[in-house]
C-alpha cells in the first residue's frame, strides 16, 4: 500500500505555535501508519518548511479568503504533482473555508474530517450558551459586542475585571476600562467582530483534547492542566489530569452534537462546578501531549477516515508532564529560496 499523503496547516512552530507540527509528529509515530506529511504554509519562514524529518514536502498556500479559487487550485496542483489524500486544517481562520469546500474536495478525492458549518458556528464564542445549556454546564456571563457603546455596557453589566476575547484567538484579562478599550481595538483590528466580553471566573483551567466520530461517539479524550503559560497565554508546561466531571462533559458534547473531527474543550473548574469557557474546532497546539501519553488522536482520525483498523482506546495516566522546549535548526538558504521562488520545499 502506498503511503497516505496528508496535508497539514499550522506548521508555524513559533512562540505561538500552530498545531501542525504536533499533529505531524503524531502521524509519524504510529508504527503501522504509512504517512507522508504535506506541509501547507502561509509564510516562507514557517519553521515546518525546514523540518524535513517531520514534514516530507511543503507548499506555500494562498490565503483561503477572497473567493477561494486560488486556494482550491493550489490544493489540486499539490494533488496532481505530489499527491494529497487528505487535509487536516489546524487553523481557526481557515476552517470555515475547508468546511464549505469539503464536498468539492471529496469529489476530487481529497478527504477531510470536519464538523458541519452549523456545528462550527454553534461553538463560536458568541453562541456558547447554547452548548452550555444543552450539556448542562455553567457558562460565565458573556456578551458579544460590536461597538464601543456595547463594550462599555457589557463592562457595566459584568463589572471589572473582565475577559476581553477575539472572535478567533486571544483573550485578555482587563482590570480597567482603558485597558479593555485598548484590547478591544487590538482584537477588532486583528480578528474583526464580534469581540467577546466575559465575566472572570476563578478555579482550575482544565482542557480536553478530543476527537468525535460524527455519530455521537468519541475516539479519544485526554484532559490536561496548564501548569505554566507564555506571555501570550500558550502552554509551556502541563500535566495530564483525570477530572471525571470534565471528561464526562466533553463526552456529552460529542454525543449531543454528534461532533465530527478534533476539538479542544476548555473549562474552569471550581469544586464540583464546571464552567465552559471555549470549544475550539481543531487540534490544539499541545495535541502531541495526548500522543505522548498513548492516545494518538491524529492517527486515530486518519485510521477512522480511511476505514483502517482502529486500535482499542488506551487509558492514559494522570500525572504525566508536558514540557515544551526551544530548539534551533541551521540550514542553508536553498530551502528558503525554493519556498520563495517555487513555493514548495524541497
Amino acid at each position: 500500500m502506498r503511503p497516505l499523503k496528508i496535508g497539514l496547516s499550522g506548521i508555524n512552530a513559533v512562540d505561538n505555535p500552530g498545531p501542525g507540527i504536533g499533529v505531524a509528529r503524531s502521524l509519524k509515530e504510529d508504527p503501522d501508519l504509512q504517512v507522508q506529511v504535506v506541509g501547507l504554509a502561509y509564510d516562507a519562514m514557517e519553521p515546518g518548511l525546514f523540518m524535513d524529518w517531520v514534514v516530507d514536502k511543503s507548499f506555500i498556500m494562498p490565503y483561503p479568503s477572497g473567493g477561494g479559487d486560488a486556494f482550491l487550485e493550489r490544493l489540486l496542483y499539490i494533488q496532481q504533482h505530489y499527491g494529497l489524500d487528505c487535509v487536516i486544517p489546524n487553523l481557526d481562520a481557515e476552517l470555515p473555508h475547508y468546511i464549505k469546500w469539503a464536498r468539492t474536495l471529496a469529489d476530487r478525492s481529497i478527504q477531510t474530517f470536519l464538523p458541519s458549518m452549523e456545528q462550527f458556528r454553534l461553538r463560536g464564542k458568541d453562541r456558547l450558551v447554547e452548548i452550555a445549556d444543552r450539556i448542562e454546564l455553567a457558562l460565565p456571563e458573556t456578551r458579544a459586542v460590536t461597538n464601543l457603546e456595547g463594550l462599555v455596557q457589557a463592562i457595566d453589566d459584568l463589572e471589572l475585571p473582565v475577559m476581553v476575547k477575539g472572535s478567533y484567538y486571544k483573550a485578555h484579562r482587563c482590570h480597567t476600562l482603558p485597558e479593555a478599550l485598548t484590547r478591544y481595538h487590538e482584537l477588532v483590528a486583528e480578528w474583526g467582530y464580534p469581540v467577546i466580553v466575559q465575566e472572570v471566573v476563578s478555579g482550575d483551567e482544565l482542557n480536553v483534547v478530543g476527537l468525535g466520530d460524527g455519530a455521537g461517539h468519541h475516539l479519544g479524550l485526554v484532559g490536561i492542566k496548564k501548569l505554566s503559560v507564555t506571555a501570550q497565554g500558550k502552554i509551556w508546561t502541563g500535566v495530564t489530569v483525570r477530572n471525571e466531571a470534565v471528561l464526562e462533559a466533553a463526552d456529552r458534547f460529542v454525543r449531543a452534537y454528534q461532533w465530527r473531527g478534533p476539538f479542544e474543550f476548555e473549562c474552569m473548574v471550581q469544586g464540583d462546578r464546571v464552567n465552559l469557557i471555549e470549544v475550539n474546532p481543531r487540534f490544539p497546539a499541545w495535541s502531541y501531549f495526548a500522543t505522548g501519553v498513548g492516545v494518538n488522536l491524529p492517527a486515530r482520525l486518519v485510521r477512522h477516515l480511511f476505514g483502517m483498523p482502529l486500535p482499542a482506546l488506551p487509558e492514559y495516566e494522570a500525572g504525566k508532564l508536558f514540557i515544551r522546549y526551544t530548539y534551533e535548526l541551521v540550514t542553508d538558504m536553498a530551502s528558503f529560496q525554493k519556498a520563495i521562488t517555487r513555493g514548495e520545499v524541497p
Binding site: 501548569l227 489530569v241 494522570a318
Partner: peptide, 18 residues
C-alpha cells in the same frame, strides 16, 4: 490522590501537586 514515599502529593482531578 497519588502519594509518593517522599511526600509528593498529586491530585489527578485538578493537576495540583503538594
Amino acid at each position: 490522590l497519588a502519594v509518593s514515599a517522599e511526600g509528593f502529593v498529586f491530585n489527578p482531578a485538578s493537576g495540583d501537586s503538594f
